[in-house]
Amino acid sequence: MDIPYTVTARPDTGVYNAKVGIWLFLASEVMLFGGLFSAYIFLRIGAPAWPGMLGGQLYKTSFDILNVPIGTFNTMVLIASSVTIVMSWASLMMNDFGKYKRYMGLTILCGLAFLVVKAFEYNAKFSHGLFPAEGNFLAIYFTLTGLHGLHVVGGIIVNSYFWGPGSKMWKTDPKRFTNRIEVAGLYWHFVDIVWIFLFPTIYLL
């Protein structure tokens, strides 16, 4: 006896198993980032100045320490990748595997571009002696963006698998493969949403 509803939806709930699973996972992720955001608020309302004294220098606003244009560029990159991954799913729904490959490839490239830009940002901080231990602003910045970056890395690994070896399933079980892309997409959109909140709260406020 095989496990039912791995591909088709259960009639009374209307969804297949993996969709319930990924939403539950995202719910727990919401609480994970929620815990970190609440830590951020808790520390910030207790701070006399923000970003404050870092490495012996007083910073009045986050603009003085973080590069807003680069952050904006990275936001655009992630938003674009969100569009491309949903387009890759739509291509599969329209039975166009070649288009799927192109869109998924673009998504992976966007993810990598985001990470490369992020690495340059980190490096710029480190080279000025701005390490997490210097103060809570930097501690929050590195911890939150670092954890988000790890999520991006995870997403890139999963997407690359579905772009490469995992895409063989399209030939044997196209419906299930389409579901998998939908689930991978849901995760990737969530990573995008986290950044949509991270960017203004850390870079702009």
Binding site: A27, M31, L32, L36
Partner: peptide, 9 residues
């Protein structure tokens, strides 16, 4: 599911 993630944070 919902209580453990803040401790993970």
């Amino acid at each position: 599911l919902l209580a453990f993630p803040p401790l993970e944070a």
